[in-house]
Simulated assay, not measured.
Amino acid sequence: MADGQLIEQLASAVDRIREQLAHVIVGQDAVIDQLLISLFSRGHCMLEGVPGLAKTLLISTLARTLNLSFNRIQFTPDLMPADITGTDIIEENRSTGQREMRFLEGPLFSNIILADEINRTPPKTQAALLEAMQERQVTVGRVRHQLADPFFVLATQNPIEQEGTYPLPEAQQDRFMFKVLVTYPSFDEEFEVVRRTTGTPADMVKPVVSPEEILSLQNMVRLVPVSDHVIKYALSLVRQTRVGESHVPEFAADQLAWGAGPRAVQFLILGAKARALMNRRTNVSVEDVQALAKPVLRHRVVVNFAAESDGVNSDQVIEQLLESTPAREDELANDARFKAIFAS
Rank of each mutant, 00 (worst) to 15 (best):
Val193Ala: 08
Gly199Ala: 12
Val143Cys: 03
Arg136Cys: 06
Glu135Ser: 10
Gln137Met: 04
Ile160Phe: 07
Gly261Met: 06
Ala155Glu: 12
Gly261Val: 09
Arg142Lys: 02
Leu129Asp: 05
Val226Glu: 01
Glu245Asp: 06
Ala260Gln: 11
Pro185Phe: 03
Asp228Gln: 11
Gln162Ile: 13
Leu235Ile: 13
Ala257Leu: 14
Pro225Leu: 00
Thr165Phe: 13
Lys206Met: 13
Thr156Glu: 08
Glu163Asn: 11
Ala132Pro: 10
Pro207Ser: 11
Glu163Met: 03
Val138Ala: 05
Leu217Phe: 06
Asp228Val: 08
Glu212Lys: 14
His229Leu: 09
Gln137Gly: 02
Pro262Gln: 12
Arg136Ile: 13
Gln255Tyr: 04
Thr139Lys: 00
Gly244Ile: 03
Pro169Ala: 04
Ala128Glu: 05
Arg175Trp: 12
Met220Glu: 01
His229Gln: 09
Ser227Tyr: 05
Thr198Arg: 14
Val243Ser: 07
Phe176Ala: 04
Gln172Asn: 09
Pro211Phe: 02
Leu237Val: 05
Tyr166Glu: 05
Asp188Cys: 15
Leu268Asn: 14
Leu168His: 14
Lys232Arg: 15
Asp203Ile: 11
Gln134Ser: 15
Met220Ile: 08
Pro167Lys: 01
Arg239His: 12
Asn219Ile: 03
Ala257Ile: 06
Leu181Ala: 02
Ser246Trp: 07
Thr183Cys: 10
Leu268Ala: 13
Pro249Ile: 14
Ala132Met: 09
Phe176Glu: 02
Arg263Tyr: 06
Ile231Val: 09
Asp254Tyr: 15
Glu212Pro: 14
Pro225Trp: 00
Val138Lys: 03
Gln146Ile: 08
Val138Asp: 02
Ser210Gln: 06
Pro159Glu: 01
Gly261Thr: 13
Ile269Tyr: 15
Val221Cys: 01
Glu250Gly: 15
Thr200Trp: 15
Gln240Phe: 01
Phe267Val: 14
Gly199Thr: 07
Arg196Val: 04
His247Gln: 08
Thr139Tyr: 00
His145Thr: 01
Gln137Trp: 01
Val153His: 07
Ala253Ile: 15
Asp174Ser: 05
Pro225Arg: 00
Val193Ile: 14
Ile214Pro: 00
Arg195Val: 09
Ile269Glu: 15
Gly261Ile: 04
Gly244Cys: 06
Gly261Phe: 05
Glu212Gly: 15
Lys232Met: 13
Asp174Pro: 08
Phe151Ser: 02
Tyr233Leu: 11
Pro201Leu: 12
Ala253Glu: 08
Met220Tyr: 02
Pro159Asp: 02
Gln255Leu: 04
Val182Glu: 04
Ala171Phe: 07
Ala264Phe: 12
Phe267Met: 10
Val153Gln: 03
Ala155Ser: 07
Ile269Val: 12
Val265Gln: 03
Glu189Ile: 11
Tyr166Pro: 07
Val238Ala: 11
Ala148Glu: 11
Pro185His: 02
Thr183Lys: 11
Thr197Pro: 05
Asp174Trp: 08
Val143Ile: 08
Pro249Asp: 05
